[in-house]
Design a protein around this nucleic acid. Sequence first.
DNA 1: ACCTTTGTTCGTGTTTTTACGAACAAGCAA
DNA 2: TTGCTTGTTCGTAAAAACACGAACAAAGGT
Lengths: 119, 119
Amino acid sequence: MVAAKTDLFEKELQEQATFFKALAHPARLQIIKYLAETRICLTGDISDTFPLTRTTLNQHIRELKNVGLIVGHEKEGKTYCCLNLEKMNEMYSILSIFLSEVQLPENFCCECGEFKYTY
Amino acid sequence: MVAAKTDLFEKELQEQATFFKALAHPARLQIIKYLAETRICLTGDISDTFPLTRTTLNQHIRELKNVGLIVGHEKEGKTYCCLNLEKMNEMYSILSIFLSEVQLPENFCCECGEFKYTY
DNA sequence: ACCTTTGTTCGTGTTTTTACGAACAAGCAA
DNA sequence: TTGCTTGTTCGTAAAAACACGAACAAAGGT
């Protein structure tokens, strides 16, 4: 990479890509799923249920914090994590909109029937 | 990375992450958006509308082909690209399901009100 | 006092992603 | 023929992502 070209795209595309990127690893999906299911703040012991070390897990959590999907709470010396409702809703809207925008009609590509597939 | 740990996660999580990863770059989002809007097979001249070289663009297109979202057609010596309806629908389902699964109730996190935010 | 758990930071190493130029073959146009 | 566009492959290089061990501080338990 000679330079980070990501900045040169439309702001909307960048924002969408940022959220998609945050979800682009199974560990992060599992963390979010866990938090959404239990609705209980994350404690360190979940690292047992992951095939990763505490350090690596911490790295993924930090990434989710960076995009704002997870917030950390301090209580009695322990650090609890939970999902940020506002950010989760924001993400849901942004990604849903994109997925809807690129929806295709059922008869799409019928005009390509005459073409020969190369893949 | 000592080893690729991605394989150690649940198959469902891996599948979801694969699609999210495919959408994790603004260039790829723009390509998909363009194809969905025009519904016309992609010709080389779109590289003018991107802040990237033909080579890099080709790389992103190849990635989208690898996950099956884009298919290539041969016609009169030119290579046309278009979205794969079936795969797009599959992706829509898979990602929509995930986004729904992690939806939170409006009163979520109210029990955390007593906590002090650290981020 | 000692040990354990917890959360984090630092440093390191590997893999993957991103990006480009050079080069090439195929097709078309002058 | 020559020149141009098009699509691709190759090699290269830098950045980012991924993963871990070591080490540390703070808190809790025995």
